[in-house]
Every structure is written in structure tokens, then in C-alpha cells.
């Protein structure tokens, strides 16, 4: 596994580097690529991003640590981020989030025993009129209830059986 020299990413890396007058500006898009390759932002990915941008790995790691969408530990195949901020909570999002964790047998931020689902709550996702909602690997799923969520979990269990880890 690698992003440097990996044909899959070369065009994207080149496009991002061309967007900005400084190399350093590409640190965020390149961290997404590292996360896609490794399933999370690990040290190998950080080292590669640093090498590509002439930065120190510590500088890259500080950026990765600042933002919630870079994961600093491995996740399940489906990374479920439930919005429990005020507008969603007024529509029952706290109860929905608690139920989902119970349904999957996970603690906050934990991953289900089959490695399929990671559940955590997040702050406002700008979907306040479609609560409860969540973000699954960076794609929004809105207007949820227990029934529609159960159906989705069943679908993802099938779809995810052979899929690789990764976000986006």
C-alpha cells in the first residue's frame, strides 16, 4: 500500500498540487487520499504526504489531528456520524443515536464486532430540516427512523461484505 507511485492517485495528486501557489495548501486534499488508501490516517500516510509536500511529518500530523474528518484510528467499513446537535436533537436525534449504538452493540466511537460499523455523534451537518440524519463515509443519509435505518444496515452488511475499508 502506498500513495506515492500508486497509479490510482497520480492524476488527483497532480491536480491538487496545481490548484495552489504553495505546495503546503495541498495538505488537506492529500490527507484525504492517504485516508482513502489506508482506511485511516496512519503514520505511513502522514510520511508520504509530508514527503510529497516537503513538510515535516509532525506538521502534517498536527493538521490531521485538528480536523474531525481525518480518522486517527482504524474505522469500520461504514463510518456512521450521527448529528446530535440542537436542531436534530429537537427531532429525537439523541434517542436515535443511543438506539443505533445499542442496535450495533457499540460504545461511542466504537466499531461493531464484525468490523462493519463505527458509530459516533458529530456536530451540526447542515441538514437540520431532515433529522434524524447521519453521514456515512462522507455521504449524507437523511430523514431516518428505526425502520429505514434497520433496512440500510441490512443492505450495508451485504454490500460491505467484500468491500475494502475507506472513506469517501
Amino acid at each position: 500500500m502506498a500513495i506515492i507511485g500508486n497509479a490510482k492517485y497520480q492524476a488527483r495528486i497532480k491536480r491538487h498540487l496545481a490548484k495552489y501557489p504553495t505546495k503546503r495548501s495541498a495538505v488537506m486534499p492529500l490527507l484525504y487520499i492517504a485516508q482513502e488508501e489506508y482506511g485511516w490516517v496512519n503514520q505511513a500516510g502522514i510520511n508520504e504526504v509530508a514527503q510529497l509536500l516537503d513538510l515535516d511529518p509532525t506538521q502534517v500530523k498536527s493538521i490531521a489531528g485538528f480536523y474531525t474528518m481525518y480518522s486517527e484510528k482504524p474505522k469500520g467499513k461504514y463510518w456512521l456520524q450521527v448529528c446530535t446537535d440542537l436542531p436534530c436533537a429537537l427531532q429525537g436525534a439523541d434517542e436515535f443515536h443511543a438506539w443505533l449504538k445499542e442496535e450495533l452493540g457499540v460504545q461511542e466511537g466504537g466499531t461493531s464486532a464484525d468490523g462493519m460499523f463505527t458509530v459516533e455523534h458529530v456536530m451540526c451537518l447542515a441538514a437540520c430540516d431532515k433529522a434524524p440524519m447521519l453521514q456515512c463515509n462522507f455521504h449524507y443519509v437523511e430523514n431516518l427512523d428505526k425502520d429505514s435505518m434497520r433496512a440500510l444496515l441490512a443492505k450495508w452488511r451485504v454490500d460491505g461484505a467484500g468491500a475494502a475499508n475507506g472513506s469517501a
Binding site: T22, R24, M28, P29, L31, I63, Y67
Partner: peptide
């Protein structure tokens, strides 16, 4: 015209934090 994706930080809606984030520094 280019797009740039943040990565989950409310503070980056504050204009000077946004500029730092876009430059590849902490937001």
C-alpha cells in the same frame, strides 16, 4: 475557480481561520 474541502471544523467559517486552513495551516 477552484474548490477546496475542509475537514470538519466550525472555526474554519471564521474568515481568517478559513484562510489559514486553505493555506495548509491549522484552522
Amino acid at each position: 475557480v477552484y474548490t477546496h474541502l475542509g475537514a470538519g471544523a466550525y472555526i474554519c467559517g471564521e474568515e481568517s481561520a478559513l484562510l489559514n486552513s486553505l493555506e495548509g495551516y491549522l484552522g
